[in-house]
Simulated assay, not measured.
Amino acid sequence: MTLPKPLRTALMLVALYAVCVLFLRYRRDGMDWQPALLIGLAMTPLALLLAKGRDKLNGKTRDAGARWRDRMRRGNN
């Protein structure tokens, strides 16, 4: 069974929010629930933005490596 893209996105947001809140709440010097919930609201979009930027950068690096390997195969140093 495949889920529609909007539903997958919503589920990923909720899961990421829950992970952020639980991480803040249960780390070694844990904080109360209210600040953890509020900071989780700020951390979730930031984490998604950083992940998207990492994926974009990795894609560009992969493409550049493929172009370089093609040049080396053809003998154009």
Rank of each mutant, 00 (worst) to 15 (best):
Y17R: 02
Y17F: 07
Y17E: 05
A18D: 04
A18P: 05
V19K: 03
V19M: 11
V19N: 13
V19H: 02
C20A: 15
C20M: 11
V21D: 11
L22K: 06
L22W: 12
L22Q: 12
L22N: 08
F23W: 13
F23Q: 11
L24K: 00
L24M: 04
L24P: 00
R25W: 01
Y26H: 15
R27H: 11
R27M: 06
R27C: 03
R27W: 11
R27I: 02
R28T: 09
R28H: 07
R28E: 10
D29G: 07
G30Q: 00
G30K: 00
G30A: 01
D32V: 03
D32L: 10
W33G: 09
W33H: 07
W33N: 13
W33D: 15
W33C: 05
Q34I: 14
Q34L: 08
Q34D: 13
Q34H: 09
P35F: 02
P35E: 00
P35Y: 01
P35A: 03
A36L: 09
A36M: 05
A36D: 02
A36N: 04
A36K: 03
A36Y: 05
L37N: 05
L37P: 13
L37T: 04
L38R: 08
L38G: 03
I39F: 14
I39G: 08
I39H: 05
G40L: 01
L41Q: 13
L41E: 12
L41H: 09
A42V: 11
M43C: 15
M43W: 14
T44I: 02
T44W: 10
T44N: 05
T44D: 05
T44A: 04
P45D: 08
P45E: 02
P45L: 02
L46D: 10
L46W: 11
A47T: 09
A47K: 05
L48T: 02
L48E: 12
L49T: 09
L49K: 14
L50R: 12
L50N: 12
A51M: 09
A51H: 15
K52T: 08
K52Y: 15
K52P: 12
G53Q: 13
G53V: 14
G53C: 11
G53P: 08
R54V: 15
R54D: 14
R54N: 08
R54C: 12
R54G: 13
R54P: 07
R54H: 11
R54F: 14
R54A: 13
